[in-house]
């Protein structure tokens, strides 16, 4: 692990399928087989009805920019990126998740709320994490 590099998630058994999918270039989220609702983050039971009958679905990767902040005091490992946006994106399926917005200068003018985004992936140590980029850009493979 690189000294003071960007944090690398440590998966647990219930989050492992999410990170395994990310390594294959897929964004997977869970859906409840009883109430039918999708949710994020991965966990052992449905937050809406407490059912443990869950399935993994592949999200479309399409999302919109729900909100963000542009951080001027970088976290360890992010020194080269500052100022950088820490965003929350709304997936087409409904759930929201945190992400960085890559492939575009992180300025208030560039980052317009509700803009269309597309998932992309970043290798972080031995783990792959989803990131988002403006739809239609080069990084949106």
């Amino acid at each position: 692990m690189p000294a003071r590099g960007k944090p690398t998630p440590v998966p647990t058994p219930e989050t492992r399928p999410y990170f395994d999918a990310a390594a294959r270039g897929e964004l997977k989220i869970q859906r409840c087989l009883d109430c039918g609702r999708p949710f994020f983050y991965p966990r052992p039971c449905c937050p809406f009805c407490a059912s443990a009958a869950l399935e993994w679905i592949t999200a479309s990767g399409r999302a919109t920019l729900y909100s963000y902040t542009i951080n001027h005091r970088p976290a360890p490992g992010f020194e080269q990126d500052a100022p950088y946006a820490i965003a929350v994106v709304q997936l087409e399926e409904g759930p929201r998740m945190m992400a960085n917005i890559v492939g575009i200068d992180n300025t208030p003018d560039n980052l317009v709320l509700d803009m269309d985004l597309q998932v992309t992936f970043e290798q972080r140590g031995d783990v792959t994490i989803p990131q988002f980029t403006p739809a239609g850009t080069e990084a949106a493979r």
Binding site: T8, S67, Y68, N71, P74, M97, M98, R124
Partner: peptide
């Protein structure tokens, strides 16, 4: 292995100024 460490820390959060502020633009 907490949810915060897996699903927020990788995106460069560092204390309250980087998290408490996120809802505000919305």
């Amino acid at each position: 292995s907490s949810p915060n460490a897996q699903f927020e820390a990788p995106y460069g959060v560092l204390g309250p100024p980087t998290m408490f502020t996120i809802p505000l633009l919305r």
